[in-house]
Design a protein around this nucleic acid. Structure first.
Ligand SMILES: [Mn+2]
Ligand SMILES: [Mn+2]
Ligand SMILES: [Mn+2]
Ligand SMILES: [Mn+2]
Lengths: 220, 220
DNA sequence: TAATTTTGTTAGAATACTCTAACTCCATAC
DNA sequence: GTATGGAGTTAGAGTATTCTAACAAAATTA
């Protein structure tokens, strides 16, 4: 069984590859906040266990075995986040930190019970898909709010990142998953958008925010 | 902050001292399933941190600081066990293993929320007291069933040990905390007892079992 | 292409935890 | 009181994870 450290590396690699199509040792190094040589030697270790594909100076990828392992950790992470929100009443801005630890608990009955109690959820509180028991995960084929046009009506269905700061920013503006929004205007200079939704008739969102909001197009 | 390993040592020491009045390095070594030199060197480490009192060849004890740390880990352990039983529907025979891992989660809000959701329980599913937030713990001044006499009526209020085997044994006989039992007879030769309770009019319990059942005397 | 910057690698070392082997201390049993 | 066996200790070493320093390769910029 993979150690806590190894699990963190596998999950990081899985997420990096699914977000950017590829991953390098320095991506891992900065995401996990370890030095480059540390990441380098861990990658060699994971290669030895046939969990990652790696050739000197080449980009990284997970083997099938590594993908499975990583997806199962991600499953535990996302199930936990959902459990913390739906069963324990936590806000979506605090659950990631706790799940980062609980994802390493070694107990199949624990996570199976969570899953049952929640009725087998398919997404986590941030809208990301939860891998199934075999490590299969749904494609994320969402549009970014930033790519929408004036007049578009969309529904917020997921977030590209779930840092607490960002989530609190959304809380302060009553932005939750499921909210229907309409694009009022787009500023060509800096990509900021004015949108309306719920009780908010006019809210300005900067480009970095719009990029991180994943939406489903309802009308345009 | 203490590492997972250090927390396990502190908790083990706390339990050994509270159960037997004292603890030695070999007690720790066998309880934690590590070699004697391993326990020895960890004790030196904990002494350096002013968590245990230790002089070569002398018995061990926790400092006030060590007691507090240990009690807070024990609090997390027992809150978790109670949570797993009352909020997640697990049987008391499986929760110890899971709690052994979750007790090391570093998140005060997580355990505070557990505590709130359960209405601040004071005992765990095996009847052991849950230390409070300051690390204070109630004295356990229970009688053992094995010390009762024929004719005594007692209520089962705690278990001295919570190994899964033992708990399954109790499950098979419908023995739960709170059950009122009557001592029908005691076999002087081997200390086994015949008791009646609930729908069980005559159940034989061996001495090792009776020793581990802690009771409150109702009548005699 | 040449210079520069970024990324990756190797070497060497530190810390935490663990072990076995060998030895010493201590309680108690004769 | 000495012999003995169990408990405790020290020495030395291995694995996992991490780091810094020094260097090499690759990518980017000029
Ligand atoms: Mn998360
Ligand atoms: Mn993690
Ligand atoms: Mn327990
Ligand atoms: Mn533990």
């Amino acid at each position: 069984m993979a150690s806590v450290t190894e699990e963190n590396y596998l999950k990081a690699l899985f997420i990096l590859v699914s977000e950017r199509g590829m991953a390098t040792i320095s991506d891992l190094s900065s995401l996990l906040k370890v030095s480059l040589p540390t990441a380098n030697s861990m990658i060699k270790n994971l290669k030895k266990q046939d969990l990652v594909n790696y050739e000197k100076y080449k980009p990284l990828s997970l083997t099938e075995k590594g993908k499975r392992e990583a997806a199962l950790v991600l499953r535990k992470h996302r199930l936990t986040e959902m459990f913390l929100v739906t069963q324990m009443g936590f806000g979506w801005e605090v659950v990631h930190e706790i799940a980062e630890q609980i994802e390493h608990i070694d107990s199949s009955i624990f996570f199976e019970r969570m899953d049952e109690l929640m009725g087998h959820p398919t997404i986590d509180p941030h809208g990301s898909p939860i891998p199934d028991k075999d490590g299969r995960i749904a494609e994320e084929v969402y549009e970014q709010l930033s790519s929408c046009k004036v007049g578009d009506k969309v529904r917020l269905i997921a977030l590209a990142h779930s840092a607490a700061d960002f989530l609190k920013y959304l809380n302060n503006r009553d932005l939750q998953l499921g909210v229907e929004m309409k694009v009022i205007s787009v500023e060509p200079f800096d990509g900021s958008m004015v949108v309306s939704y719920s009780n908010h008739s006019s809210e300005t969102l900067t480009h970095p925010v719009c990029e991180r909001l994943r939406v489903e197009l309802l009308e345009h």
